[in-house]
Amino acid sequence: MADIIDIANPTRTQAILNQYGLHAKKKFGQNFLTDLNVLHGIVDVAGITSEDYVIEIGPGIGALTEQLARSAKKVVAFEIDPHMVAVLAETLLPYDNVKVIENDILKVDLAHVIATEFGEGAHVKIVANLPYYITTPILMQLLRAKISWDNIVVMMQREVADRLNAEIGTKAYGVLTLTIQYYAQAQLAIKVPASAFNPSPNVDSAVVMLTPIVPETVVDNPDKLFSVVKGSFAHRRKSLWNNMLQMFGKQEDVKQRIQDALDAVNIASSIRAERLSLNQLTALYEALKLQGLIK
């Protein structure tokens, strides 16, 4: 396919946009990546081989999809914009190992798709140039989905990337940081300037690789754990105690059980959630369960 001009080639990208009357839609967070070095870098970071099955999110006109298809065994891409799906049918025509599914990734049963499209026990990698406005919900969805993956390589706003490995007590430290810590190790792999896109966004981006880990402390129900974590950060300026009352109620017996749980794990009620580590919040979750506050 040496004679094929890459979709990401700036001239071809513009020609495709002109041909189909396309423009970046803000509601879908669209920006078209036109830097081949970045695209090749993403494929390299993910370590895509001919044995790999790839899930892609938000293929746009297919610039990244094309590069993935050249290395992977099969690519399944989810595109929410029906107009783009029609474009992809033509731009990706040379690649018979790509399937585009018109759907919202937040509504997809990924386990079912992987079993259907790739088969049981497949080596699955997830790659995406994530829409900035919905980066966090998508990451949460991927991490909490009951699927097995080799790595997740995603491009996101640099500010969000910095939150993944934020230090305790900083403004960036929060629910996303803790969720990442439970499920994966995050590594900032590539810094991407705004100039790599058409049109250029107002912010710089970064490519991050997530590698799955076994949590230091495994809980019976991670979804419930992170409900507690989310509730603990509900009002960042408020103390953990006030956020706990909002979560569980203000009845006197409830207050006593919350206090007993805090005492059991040596956490002061006056502390703010941003000062607590994942291990401390996990211990608190278990203590709240023992107090009957979490069923």
Rank of each mutant, 00 (worst) to 15 (best):
D3K: 14
I7F: 03
Q19W: 02
Y20G: 04
Y20C: 01
K25T: 02
K27L: 12
K27Y: 13
F28H: 11
V45S: 01
T49S: 15
E51R: 13
Y53W: 10
V54I: 15
E56C: 08
G58V: 01
G60D: 07
I61C: 03
A63V: 04
L64I: 08
T65E: 09
E66M: 04
E66F: 03
Q67C: 13
L68H: 07
A77H: 12
A77W: 12
E79F: 08
E79G: 03
D81W: 03
P82W: 01
A86S: 15
L88Y: 03
L88E: 07
E90C: 01
P94N: 06
D96I: 06
N103I: 06
D104I: 01
D109Y: 08
G119P: 14
G119E: 07
G121N: 07
K125M: 02
I126P: 11
A128Y: 05
A128V: 01
N129Q: 10
N129C: 09
I134E: 09
T136N: 07
P137Y: 02
I138F: 03
L139W: 10
W149N: 08
V154I: 15
M155Q: 13
R158G: 06
E159M: 08
D162E: 15
R163K: 15
N165C: 13
T170M: 06
T170G: 03
K171D: 13
A172C: 00
Y173S: 09
G174S: 04
Y183W: 10
A186Y: 08
A186K: 11
I190D: 04
A194L: 00
S205D: 08
A206K: 02
V207R: 02
I213R: 14
L225Q: 06
S232R: 07
A234G: 11
A234C: 07
K238F: 00
S239F: 03
N242H: 11
M244L: 14
M244S: 12
Q246C: 05
G249V: 09
K250M: 11
D253H: 14
V254K: 13
K255P: 11
Q256A: 15
R257M: 05
Q259N: 15
A264L: 11
A264V: 07
A268L: 02
A268T: 00
A273W: 04
R275Q: 15
Q280R: 13
L281A: 09
T282W: 00
T282G: 02
T282F: 00
Y285G: 04
K289Q: 14
L293H: 03
K295C: 08
